[in-house]
Amino acid sequence: MMNELKLSNLLTPKNILLDVKEKEKDALLAKIIKTFSEVNNIADPEALAREVTEREALGNTGIGRGIGFPHAKSSQVDEISVLLARPARPIEYGALDGLPVNLVILIIAPDSGDNNQYLHAMARISRLLGKSEVREKLAQVKTPQEAIDTIAAFEN
């Protein structure tokens, strides 16, 4: 498949949050966007937050099986960037399958970038996190580096 962008290559210990204490979806998304903005030196974090929440309002990004996958295109980034968060407790996310979310991954792509690469990156991540064995391992990791190693092992 073309454009094989790997999630493990996009992750660093700085863009992984484990055991996030926020208890509600909105607060969790706000925390994720704030951290993402800090890690990626986003010039206008409020604009980014607006872009993500406006897209979320047009359709819940809970893709089932306990995964939240907020995403947007933005002029605030130059390349596809991500942030992985694991809430301390499952969070009610309003997903279609009714399951609370244990894992949230934010992906932001440049608004003028390669749309195919963006679609394929999201498809790869969705397939990867759709595997129960990946989610089970990620539920147990104790450090961000362990999370990266776990994802890399399943991607290779």
Partner: peptide, 19 residues
């Protein structure tokens, strides 16, 4: 793997167009 990944691509494409 091929069908799942392609399927997600079609879905995200549809989502992109609709949103």
């Amino acid at each position: 793997v091929e069908l799942e990944e392609n399927g997600w691509c079609y879905l995200y494409n549809a989502e992109e167009i609709a949103k």
